[in-house]
Design a protein around this nucleic acid. Structure first.
Length: 429
DNA sequence: AGGAATAGCCC
DNA sequence: GTACGGGCTATTCCTA
């Protein structure tokens, strides 16, 4: 294999901030840092898998792209006209600067909160959402932005490409070991655009995704008894959290309460604070703080695990996952509170996110070596999901085997459950 | 031409 | 007064 690629990966694993030119030194360095296994068993075998995925590409229905493009163009024209009429003049809706002046100066809409450092008020969708009742132009702007995004970022670039779309996977671009995808990025396709991605004729598109993998990893790493028990019984984890935090029986949890618990569960993985939880749940800050405290008193081991991770990060200057993958976080001892807190949140998340990344990479490698014929094509990897094209008459048997591979590829105390869906296009899945 | 700022899509 | 982890891309606008 190309030495350049090896060096790049080695440096990425070691410490991306201080790359080493001397390639004779790298193998010893890897060994010394405990990264030999990840290098040899994960990253190097993955290179060929990624190359194969990139070469295969994924089929798109160009007619469907064209149809959507026409639809969105028409819609945008109508919205544009209505917006100009409401504003009383024509302006560039895509310019936050001009839009801000129209909304908050000309139309005299009262902004919530303070201006940004440029002196103008933000026009982010999240802020506009709060001003919906103030003026009928707001909803039009929100819709315009959504449609323009779909058209300019997804539909137009796709239309310029061939019948099969070939992304480039970046193996060394993330701090946690995840893959990224560029040119085009096929890891952030909106649900409305997914329907243009289709199976080759004679094949089905099949998606296999790890169910709640990050929360399962959190349960396993923290050894929290309630969470472990819930996953063992294959319970609805968000329902359990709601029942614990709001102190109500499992069968009395409303969908609203379950949603809040879901936000809380994900927020915990990301190190979310009370302010962010309040904002995303609609609770007051006081209530939000109360429920976060409640969460940590119900799941005591999670709090303990997080504190241990932060402590180790401060001591070592890096965090690592179960496989020894490292992330350096020098800012964690900064006297700047913002910087140290930011590093703490990254520290808490890294052992979880990076282990999930390792697991799906191992699964990709194993599946790829299992299927050398053309009946099974691994097309995309989207963090916790693998997207395949599988010969129609082979789907049932193959899916069983791949599920088995994905669920057993990594030995972990919590069952890693895989969900499957099959269809003719990506939106069906 | 290139980068910062702003915005928004995904897991 | 305020701070949710990890990515990529498009547009505007300012600076060199």
């Amino acid at each position: 294999m190309n030495q350049e690629i090896k060096n790049k990966i080695a440096n990425w694993l070691l410490n991306p901030d201080n790359p080493i030119d001397n390639k004779e030194e790298l193998p010893n360095k890897l060994k010394k840092e405990g990264l030999e296994n990840i290098f040899n068993e994960i990253e190097l075998p993955l290179v060929d898998v990624l190359r194969s995925m990139e070469e295969l590409g994924i089929k798109i229905n160009k007619n469907e792209v064209k149809k959507l493009l026409t639809k969105y163009n028409k819609e945008l024209k109508v919205l544009e006209k209505k917006i100009y009429k409401e504003a009383g003049e024509e302006f560039n809706i895509n310019s936050p600067q001009q839009l801000s002046k129209i909304l908050f100066e000309k139309l005299d809409i009262e902004p919530r909160g303070r201006a940004t450092k440029s002196g103008l008020h933000s026009t982010r969708a999240e802020k506009l959402q709060e001003l919906k009742e103030e003026h009928s132009i707001i909803n039009l702007i929100i819709k315009y932005r959504e449609s323009f995004k779909i058209k300019s970022t997804y539909l137009e670039p796709l239309f310029k490409l061939g019948d099969r779309v070939h992304t480039t996977f970046l193996q060394t671009s993330t701090a946690t070991g995840r893959l990224s995808s560029q040119n085009p990025n096929l890891q952030n396709i909106p649900s409305v655009v997914k329907k243009v991605f289709i199976a080759s004729s004679g094949y089905e598109l099949v998606s296999l995704d790890y169910s709640q993998i990050e929360l399962r990893i959190l349960a396993g790493l923290s050894n929290d008894p309630k969470m472990l028990k819930a996953f063992k019984a294959d319970q609805d984890i968000h329902r359990l959290t709601a029942s614990q935090v709001f102190d109500i029986p499992l069968d009395k949890v409303t969908s609203e309460e379950r949603n809040m618990a879901k936000t809380l569960n994900f927020g915990i993985v990301y190190g979310m604070g009370a302010v962010a939880f309040a904002r995303s749940s609609g609770l007051s800050r006081k209530e939000a703080r109360h429920f976060i405290e409640e969460y940590f008193s119900d799941f005591k081991k999670i709090k303990k695990w997080q504190e241990e991770v932060k402590e180790r990060a401060r001591k070592n200057g890096y965090v690592e996952n179960l496989n020894g993958r490292k992330r350096w976080l020098p800012a964690i001892t900064s006297t700047n509170k913002f910087l140290s807190s930011e590093a703490e949140r990254a520290a808490i998340n890294m052992p979880i996110q990076s282990l999930a990344a390792d697991i799906i990479k191992l699964a990709m490698i194993k599946v790829h070596q299992q299927y050398k014929n053309d009946d099974v094509r691994l097309l995309l990897s989207i963090h916790d999901e693998l997207l395949f094209e599988i010969k129609s008459d082979k789907v049932n048997s193959v899916v069983k085997k791949i599920t088995q591979i994905m669920e057993s590829v990594y030995n972990f105390p919590v069952h890693l459950k895989v969900d499957v869906s099959v269809g003719k296009n990506w939106a069906d899945l």
